[in-house]
C-alpha cells in the first residue's frame, strides 16, 4: 500500500512540474528565459515520472522480466539526464550565433 502512495506522489509531482514548465514556456517574456522553463522543469519532471513508472512495473511483476524493463527505463532516465541539457545548450548557442537579443526592461 505504501508503495502505491509513493508511486502516485511521484507521478503527480511530475505532472505539477510539467504543468508549470508549460506555463513557463507560455508566459516568460523572452526566448532565453523560456529555455529555463524547458531545460530544468522538463528534466526534473521526466526523471520523476520515469522513476514512478519503473517502481509501478517492479511492484506489479517482481520477476526477471520486470527487472529488465525497469533497467531499460533506468537507461532512458540516464539518457534524458544527459541529453536534455545538451539539447537546451544547442538551441541557445544557435540563437546566440544568429544574434537573438536577451530581453531587458532597462538597458545598462
Amino acid at each position: 500500500m505504501i508503495i502505491n502512495g509513493i508511486i502516485v506522489f511521484l507521478l503527480y509531482l511530475a505532472l505539477v512540474i510539467f504543468a508549470t514548465g508549460t506555463a513557463g514556456i507560455l508566459r516568460f517574456p523572452d526566448f532565453y528565459s523560456r529555455l529555463h522553463a524547458a531545460g530544468k522543469c522538463d528534466t526534473m519532471a521526466a526523471i520523476l515520472a520515469l522513476s514512478s513508472i519503473a517502481l509501478y512495473h517492479l511492484s506489479e511483476n517482481p520477476d526477471l522480466g520486470g527487472v529488465l524493463v525497469a533497467l531499460k527505463i533506468l537507461l532512458i532516465l540516464v539518457f534524458v539526464f544527459i541529453s536534455s541539457p545538451t539539447a537546451t545548450h544547442a538551441i541557445s548557442q544557435a540563437a546566440l550565433i544568429i544574434g537573438v537579443e536577451p530581453w531587458g526592461r532597462e538597458k545598462k
Binding site: G21, I25, F31, R34, A38, D42, I91, A94, A95
Partner: peptide, 11 residues
C-alpha cells in the same frame, strides 16, 4: 522565433 518552435517540439 524559429527557436521557440524548436523548443516547443523538443518539449
Amino acid at each position: 522565433l524559429i527557436f521557440d518552435r524548436i523548443l516547443g517540439g523538443n518539449m
